[in-house]
Design a protein around this nucleic acid. Sequence first.
DNA 1: TGAGGTTACGCCTATCGTAATAATG
DNA 2: CATTATTACGATAGGCGTAACCTCA
Lengths: 96, 96
Amino acid sequence: MSLSQLRYFVTVAEEGHVGRAASRLRISQPPLTRQIRGLEDELGVTLFRRTPRGMELLPAGERFLDAARDVLAGVDRAVALARTDAGGPPRPGGRG
Amino acid sequence: MSLSQLRYFVTVAEEGHVGRAASRLRISQPPLTRQIRGLEDELGVTLFRRTPRGMELLPAGERFLDAARDVLAGVDRAVALARTDAGGPPRPGGRG
DNA sequence: TGAGGTTACGCCTATCGTAATAATG
DNA sequence: CATTATTACGATAGGCGTAACCTCA
């Protein structure tokens, strides 16, 4: 499980369409399909129902979507907290 | 930034020692050092102070530690939620 | 036939482990 | 010299893109 997989999953869930999601993520469909598939495989849970119209979120997927968004938001929060200037010395080569 | 980096960081923070942290993580010191360094570089923030006795958490590191734990807990929660049996069909080849 | 998701294959990057190096006291 | 973190170098695994394939209506 990786943060990329979580981002990919959220995008596919939002678009309901691998092609559109891939476009938004600036990657091609195959790696996106594989990552979603790998995520499902690792979880042991089917997150989407494949239809001729696209990807339909299953109940397990909806529950996971909520938690995945929380994780990604937590990452942003962590980064912001670390970068909060509170007397820490700047790194040489940092964006300072 | 990766979930591995977050796990590595939390372990080093808890041990205050790259060697012990690496042992707990079942990897060797060099990759652990590199991942911590890469994390600091990506954040643009120094998280630890290197001393002859080990790794000492700086203020930015303490703030990040709290948030990193939250992220990792969120991942566990997401997995548990997805696996919550609520009528979802089992995957063929799953761990059933 | 058309739309959409999936699999096969090759390339590139990232990560790991072993060995060697630098700093501290 | 002893301890700890870091860098150099080669091997392995994972991710991406192009091309080809399967499924459904």
